[in-house]
Design a protein around this nucleic acid. Structure first.
Lengths: 348, 348
DNA sequence: TTGTACGCGTTATCAT
DNA sequence: ATGATAACGCGTACAA
């Protein structure tokens, strides 16, 4: 006889001739309750096939043990590492993740944020879409003091934490490295400067040129969405230039564009790094497979995710009304590989 | 004065001197309600900063518009494509995704399944961990008729849908292809045969050998977790063999192991495909970057995800008590690339 | 240590 | 077309 009502704490209570309140307490292992009754309750729960109803609980207790995660895209190596790190940390603390992607669309980001709010997530983890201009859509969170943690593509907000790496410094160093290899006409493939990550990488690149008294050449700066296609188009752009105008190095703001640019140039007979040296960003798996291996910047998505969630949960467990604003800068490492080692290769 | 109570439909009701029931209906655009009142309600809602409380609604209406997704790992190319596809389809239908990973651990899978049940997901999408032996942990879902959709790593269950590709056929074809290239000693790098995907790929490989009257050689079958490290170890295993015993081709059950095996062999002076031809599985981005490009099996994670969610939601919207069990086999394509083109390359 | 009683915010039912 | 009321399952202040 398929009874279709849920098994509730009342059923357990009736079964044991005790009150629902006691069952509720016993199930949470409240030490006030007699150890014996606790055991009896647990047994009865198992026997009756009781499964606690999280949102009935949430309705009462005002917290969901659920974190919202809002990212531009789910299917990139970096982002899936971040998610893996987040899930790990969340799980460890008894939290769950509800995940949505904006597909780089500010409007969708707004809708998703609203959904997450309506689901009453205990906190929000967000990396902004390509063209998000403001964060008005996060106001409901701010108003209700629901903590928001920005990561990677962040937005200045003095009541939220941001998790980033030093994009400026990493870009500066990688550009400096190319310069030390003898490169003088370094091209940069960048993204939308609305986003800190691309702005900072561009700034770092430019500053390195300045500090080395190299000109910043307008023609050697391309912005795009840094997709495979964008990499291929960058290569065509280079091939269309008069040979003397061509760059002797390319620093791309991500590995995907770098790699597909390399592949296209190689197919056209350009030698790497002899003719054009390369550097990317992210340490994507493809950077270790392309030949010559791509010089890049390594930073752990896993760590970003872990840090973001851990930080958020700490706020949640502490006094969330008084927590201190901060920005956490994670470590990143320059990974030097053959694609940028101009002089050394040339010596052979 | 920071009032910390939520804005509820009662506030709107009071504000407009109407009943909460009307507000509830109006907010859902119930056509029974006067268009005028509907507008007034919407306006008041905006004005008062009302945000619907999803789980109060869920408590009453018995459905959460949330789907649980339980995967072995979040951070693989295939899985992140699947998730992207799922999120897309779910979003399109007004559903959300709550995501957890088992980290290939059956115990963790069990715990996660329980959490998902407790959150009363409307349906569960699951790909089994490496060593899951049974699906007793899904019983609560079956008992409550909550639809479960298996994808990729599935389990036979006559009240659930499975989304797969024809792993057997794809493996058969790719092995046949290698044989047609003149390969006679084809090694197979496989996974745990507990999982259909690896069992079927192994079977397809073996059948192709049989059909071509080639011996199935014990030493040429290695099982592992198909990680980078496993690929490297497979290469070492090959290099340790007497040259005459070595395979003349390797068919790996995933691209990662294939690519790292290739890289290691290349570094040791083995020529690919002349000495050893290669084929993988998944059409991971690295397969397009390795040189020579890896022959592989393409199937869209995006489509898997989309299909799984769409199917699930169809059940949800239809009569979920009567839905018909089925197994959906998605298309996959053999992608032939240079790494396996033994004869052609040799001719040059 | 346990029980009573109420409320969380919404929706379904029945009535008007 | 709208209102009154109960109920969803749980947690907690207060009482015992």
């Amino acid at each position: 006889m398929p009874e279709n009502r849920e098994v509730t704490i009342y059923d357990i209570a009736k079964h044991l001739n005790i009150s629902a309140a006691t069952v509720s307490r016993g199930l949470k292992n409240n030490p006030m309750i007699n150890k014996n009754t606790r055991k009896k309750i647990a047994d009865a729960a198992k026997q009756l096939g009781y499964q606690s109803n999280t949102f009935a609980s949430s309705l009462r207790s005002k917290h969901t043990h659920t974190l919202g995660v809002l990212v531009p895209r789910l299917n990139s190596y970096f982002m899936s590492s971040v998610l893996a790190g987040m899930e790990n940390a969340a799980n460890r603390h008894g939290y769950n993740l509800i995940i949505a992607q904006s597909l780089e669309d500010a409007e969708k980001e707004k809708l998703n944020a609203e959904t997450m709010f309506n689901k009453r997530v205990d906190g929000l983890l967000i990396s902004l879409s390509y063209n998000t201009q403001h964060i008005n859509h996060l106001e409901p969170f701010f108003k209700r003091k629901i903590p928001v943690v920005f990561f990677d593509r962040v937005y200045p907000h003095n009541e939220s934490t941001s998790i980033v790496i030093n994009n400026y410094g990493a870009a500066y160093n990688i550009t400096q490295h190319l310069i030390e290899q003898g490169c003088r006409r370094i091209m940069h493939l960048g993204g939308n400067v609305l986003r800190n990550v691309y702005k900072d990488r561009l700034d770092g690149y430019r500053q390195a040129l300045n500090d080395n008294r190299l000109p910043v050449i307008q023609q050697l700066y391309l912005t795009s969405n840094l997709s495979e296609q964008a990499g291929i188009e960058a290569a065509r752009y280079i091939l269309d230039m008069a040979p003397d105008d061509r760059p002797d190095a390319v620093f791309s703001a991500n590995d995907t564009a770098a790699v597909y640019c390399m592949l296209t140039l190689k197919a056209a007979g350009i030698r790497i790094p002899e003719d054009i040296a390369f550097a990317g960003f992210n340490n994507d798996p493809i950077s270790k497979v392309i030949e010559p291996n791509l010089t890049t910047v390594d930073y752990s998505g896993d760590t970003v995710g872990n840090t973001a969630v851990t930080n958020l949960i700490n706020h949640l467990k502490g006094d969330s009304n008084l927590y201190i604003t901060n920005s956490i800068t994670l470590r990143s490492d320059l990974v030097i590989r053959a694609s940028s080692l101009k002089k050394q290769i040339a010596r052979n």
